[in-house]
């Protein structure tokens, strides 16, 4: 009796916790609200199974508790029942899987009008690179990295000249602008994760991975590294600020292009040489 009640209470408690506890996800701020819908669907389907199976178990524990005069049933199997249960389970699983795969297909099909942004991760921080007016990012290589060329941009590539370098942990995005982020890492695995955007992907040195989203709410969101990357993993944070058109243009105007940076650096260098000569 006591045992059955406690097991039932555990289940009831879990339901209460689920619906009434204050811990729940942050409001979605991107177009990936349908991922939340998938999660809710999974909750209903699997939650029902959990509750039914466990309450049935608690019922059996109470109803068929040991009595000396009781004799258990002898029933090796029941093909019909087992077949039905299999079928129902298979249908339930299919109901979870089908919408999930449809959403996944959206997740990996980047819209053509997406603006490309490079996210560059290193131990332990973030940099960004935006395409200039040509809308294309120049190619890069790790072996080209130097003080003058912190991103390892290919100077031969015409696309790289007007690339905008954001050497700061804050990235601004224009609201409702579709973004394809191209993820690049210099050293170890990282992961570009903003909980409110629901999206996530590892960054692997040597490979460019990607995903896309549309920031749909103005605000200030924290970037977290979500793939363990060594001692500083937990402090590897950044910010994404979603602006309206005007703020975004103001911010963009303050950024520097690769070409300008090269020019600046060579001026600095000349000054330095001049100083040394004096």
């Amino acid at each position: 009796m006591f045992v059955a009640i406690i097991f039932a209470l555990v289940i009831v408690g879990s339901i209460i916790f689920h619906f009434w506890s204050p811990w729940w996800w942050t409001p979605v701020a991107s177009n990936w609200g349908n991922i939340d819908d998938n999660i809710i669907l999974s909750f209903w389907v699997t939650g029902t199974v959990f509750v039914v199976v466990c309450l049935f178990m608690a019922y059996c524990v109470w109803r068929y508790r040991y009595r000396p005069d009781r004799k258990a049933e002898y029933k090796p199997e029941d093909k019909k029942l087992e077949f039905r249960l299999t079928l129902i389970t298979a249908l339930g699983v299919a109901a979870l899987l089908a919408p999930g795969l449809v959403t996944w297909n959206q997740y990996i099909s980047v819209p053509k009008d997406a603006m490309k942004i490079e996210v560059l991760a290193y131990q332990w921080g973030w940099n960004f690179r935006l395409p200039g007016n040509d809308g294309a990012l120049g190619t890069t290589s790790v072996s080209l990295i130097s003080d003058e060329n912190p991103y390892g941009l290919n100077p031969e590539d015409p696309n790289s000249k007007d690339d905008i370098l954001v050497m700061d942990a804050d990235l601004h995005l224009k609201i409702n602008q579709t973004v394809k982020i191209e993820l690049r890492s210099l050293d170890v695995l990282h992961n570009f994760y903003i909980p409110q955007f629901r999206a996530k992907m590892d960054m692997i040195p040597g490979i460019i991975s990607y995903y896309w989203f549309i920031p749909e709410k103005k605000g200030d969101f924290e970037i977290l590294c979500a793939e363990y990357c060594g001692l500083g993993h937990y402090v590897m944070r950044g910010r994404v600020l979603v602006d309206d058109e005007k703020d975004y243009s103001n911010w963009l105007a303050r950024q520097i292009t690769y070409e300008k940076m090269l020019a600046q650096k060579s001026v600095e260098k000349k000054l330095l040489i001049a100083e040394n000569k004096n």
């Binding site: 045992v3 879990s14 998938n38 999974s42 699997t46 199974v49 466990c54 997740y107 992961n191 996530k200």
Partner: peptide, 30 residues
């Protein structure tokens, strides 16, 4: 054994979340 059933069913159904690729995207590494 009864405790196993409860914890296993609980842990098993969350596996259906993580196995479903799109739901894994927000939840993985958390």
């Amino acid at each position: 054994a009864l405790g196993f059933i409860v914890t296993f069913v609980n842990g098993g159904i969350t596996g259906l979340f993580l196995g479903n690729v799109i739901i894994d995207i927000p939840l993985s590494d958390t």
